[in-house]
Design a binder for these strands. Structure first.
Lengths: 154, 154
DNA sequence: TATTGTTATACTCTATAACTATA
DNA sequence: TATAGTTATAGAGTATAACAATA
């Protein structure tokens, strides 16, 4: 690998400002493309329901007010959302073991499967794009993946 | 199932499936963090207005129906959105030079400044995160940036 | 007295349908 | 006849306010 810089790269990323800007644009655009790769079953679910279900799958079990906070909506709105998810059999409500005011929600097996299928879809889409890269480009991304991961935790 | 994997030590990205999955997670999480870095002025603007304004800044001048298509809403909805943007002095309407049916919209100087400031904000946030990496890690991202960019165009 | 969830009500946003102007 | 924009109206979603149960 020479010091003369990239030859076939679209944009030379030299300065720190260029790196920020290029990285920001690429990450935002790629995430938009990824987000648009919804599975058909989730396509029919309204976005607020998808968000709440995904959060429940990630966190396991949450009280109504916690779920509302995560999703950035008010308790009455979340009440409606989980009600619809419950009707579809995607989440179930449970009593809190000690605090009888709280109502806990957890995804059902079906709800979990739906989210998992969605992730599988996006992975498949991205995997196909990765196959269209050169081996060298894939190697570059392989090295960068842990760094991007670290970046999200800073 | 439903386990996102260890977070402490970066996962060794070996197989193609691991690369897809790690990259997908990191990109989605990073874009969420970036999106949450809104400037205060844009914070008060409803999301549909922000989206339409950003699209106009990107493309320069668009007819109502084109803007509606880009934003994934119907013409009557976009009509309302640009009306609000016009009230705030962020976009202005112009007559189409040849087709008198069409109404063209373009961002004002103020509208452009608002979007630009927002981008500057996110760049600043990301730049700070990049400074917290090691030089070697930054070099890895520098090499990966053009590849990520290429990925979005496949 | 504070917190959690629920119900009632009003407001905002979007879409469909109908209408006008222009191509 | 088709297309662009606008207006009128209905449906979906969210928030605030008020209320009930529990801590």
């Amino acid at each position: 690998m020479g010091v003369d810089g990239p030859v076939e790269a679209p944009i030379a990323v030299r300065t720190a400002a260029e790196l920020s800007s290029t990285l920001r644009l690429a990450v935002m655009r790629l995430s938009r493309r990824l987000r648009s790769q919804r599975s058909e079953e989730l396509e029919s679910l309204p976005a607020p329901q998808v968000g709440a279900l995904a959060t429940l799958v990630r966190h396991g079990t949450l009280a109504l007010h916690e779920l509302a906070q995560y999703e950035g909506v008010r308790p009455p709105s979340m009440n409606r959302i989980v009600g619809q998810l419950e009707e579809r059999g995607l989440v179930e409500r449970m009593a809190h073991p000690t605090d009888r005011r709280q109502v806990l929600f957890a995804p059902t097996r079906e709800g979990r499967a739906l989210i998992k299928e969605d992730r599988r879809r996006r992975d498949a889409w991205l995997a196909q794009r990765l196959r269209e890269l050169t081996p060298r480009e894939r190697e570059t991304l392989r090295a960068a993946a842990p760094v991007l991961e670290k970046l999200t935790n800073l």
